[in-house]
Design a protein around this nucleic acid. Structure first.
Lengths: 288, 288
DNA sequence: CGCTATGTTGAGAAGAGTCAACGCGAGTGG
DNA sequence: CCACTCGCGTTGACTCTTCTCAACATAGCG
């Protein structure tokens, strides 16, 4: 791996690495002129957070990486951006979307029909990859939106092929994360296709709880839950009104409690039973 | 690429390639004793079809590959199997599922809830990869079943890591196909979540028509359509009865015709309009 | 202060589910 | 050969989940 790392660095930093240089320029100028200027001052210094000091990767959920691997990832990380809640990270049809890792906050990925109906495909939590599909295929076929204020680590889509060529372990990790995402999609499709409204809501809550817990975001059965009812409705293929009614039925039944943006899973057992949820144990996952 | 190929072959065929040798043994014995013996005589000679003579890859839908690349793929192909309709190709929970390419016929991938409800996640047509997710993650979280009699090309899951390590172009292609699959899943989820029954059925028919057409399987607006109403219901999250009623409404409205397993798309325009379908152009895709 | 986004509740409509009866063709065994 | 079953498709009648429309409450914000 050390060898690989050196090879890669040599490649990246060679003075004649014209493509790379070009690309950095492109990227900087784009981010400066990107359409809706983030409402907060974009005080993100280039590579604001070094991968060596990444607090995320210390969490129990992630596979340990060697110094060399982290060094390589750190080299590939071209930016660290803050994005205000509600802003698009990738928009449908975009052909130059970069590859991101969500560093903090929540995001969501959705797709719309022409008449405005929209389907939220999945929710994105810290450590998840954003835009792999968009980076591999020619254009993004979906939109990714920041659900809260978020921070993302940016990797150039132009490096993706290089990663495959020079850093197979990393390429493998990326594909692994892609496969994991596809697993979530499978779950969501099964939910929307087969479960009733109560089951869907219980399954969604439980699924997000488990993911948050895995990341150490749950304390005292409670975690930050930034979704509105509309988000839930859009994710589950239900109408807003029916979502609200079913949600409050479940709340009254004692499954969970929700106030001021915090969700508490009062009765995990009952929630599991309601959701017809069965969980697989997933092994430690790679990051970045 | 030639260099890569040589390196790979050297690796595969080195006399001290203990793992590899082991693996072939394992594989042979497993396939001999695999649980439900295929109802048809398993007359598949090892590597029945050479990748050099692969009729599939001649189809217009696929990216051209160099001789070297084909040679490499041919080396990796460890078997060519016939599987009878209704048989599982990969079953949920399986930990040693190989990676396959569907050579001929149709297959489907599904997931069940404990109480028997099942969701068909997607349909698999010739040239599609089977089991990437299962090969990357520890165990398959879904079942893949042959919808018709099928033939598959078999690649060892044990080679997957080697592919990443030694044949980045191939690894990239595999990931590309994974991303494409995820795109189909996105579409299905959007359908099931947002479209009405008529829209869903029209979208499904149209989607399959396009995919079949792309493979050259459509003649005279007509193609082999092996799904039963139950399959359609399970894929679209509808009840059998409602599926049948809606299907026959659409048939009577002149969208399509269906007899003796052949579907004819009589009115593509109307079908598109009914489906609220919008199609992206996808570039040529890799195969194997 | 009114604006907007979000949440809540009720009432009626409609889409989709369930149950049940029946037709039809393919296979199968007597 | 027939009678039989079995899988699949079809249709009608009824039920119920979910949707839509609408009125109203609440909270944050310029």
């Amino acid at each position: 791996m050390c060898l690989q790392y050196l090879r890669f660095c040599a490649f990246l930093e060679a003075p004649n690495a014209a493509i790379e240089t070009d690309h950095r320029l492109t990227l900087t100028s784009r981010s400066a002129s990107s359409k809706p200027a983030p409402s907060k001052p974009a005080t993100s210094p280039r590579r604001g957070v070094s991968c060596f000091e990444c607090p995320l990767r210390l969490r129990g959920a992630f596979k340990q990486k060697s110094e060399d691997e982290i060094a390589l990832i750190n080299t590939l990380k071209i930016d660290h951006r803050r994005i205000a809640s509600g802003t698009d990270i990738i928009h449908g049809g975009q052909e130059d979307a970069e590859l991101f890792t969500l560093f903090s906050g929540w995001a969501l990925r959705y797709k719309s029909l022409e008449d405005g109906r929209r389907q939220i495909l999945n929710f994105i939590l810290p450590g998840d990859l954003i835009g792999l599909q968009a980076a591999l295929l020619a254009a993004a076929e979906y939109t990714v939106e920041a659900l809260t204020d978020v921070e993302v680590c940016v990797f150039s889509r132009r490096h993706v092929w290089m990663i495959f060529e020079k850093a197979p372990q990393l390429a493998y990790d990326i594909s692994w994360l892609g496969a994991r995402d596809e697993g979530f999609l499978d779950d969501n499709l099964t939910s929307v296709g087969q479960r009733t409204a109560r089951e869907r809501i219980a399954a969604l809550v439980l699924g997000l709880y488990r993911r948050a817990d895995n990341l150490g975001l749950v304390q005292n059965k409670t975690f930050l839950f930034p979704l509105t009812r509309q988000h839930i409705a859009d994710a589950l293929g239900l109408s807003l009104v029916h979502t609200i009614k079913t949600w409050s039925t479940l709340r009254k039944a004692g499954l969970f409690e929700f106030k001021s943006g915090q969700l508490t899973l009062l009765n995990p057992r009952l929630t599991e039973a309601t959701a017809k949820f069965y969980d697989r144990e997933r092994p430690l996952r790679p990051i970045l």
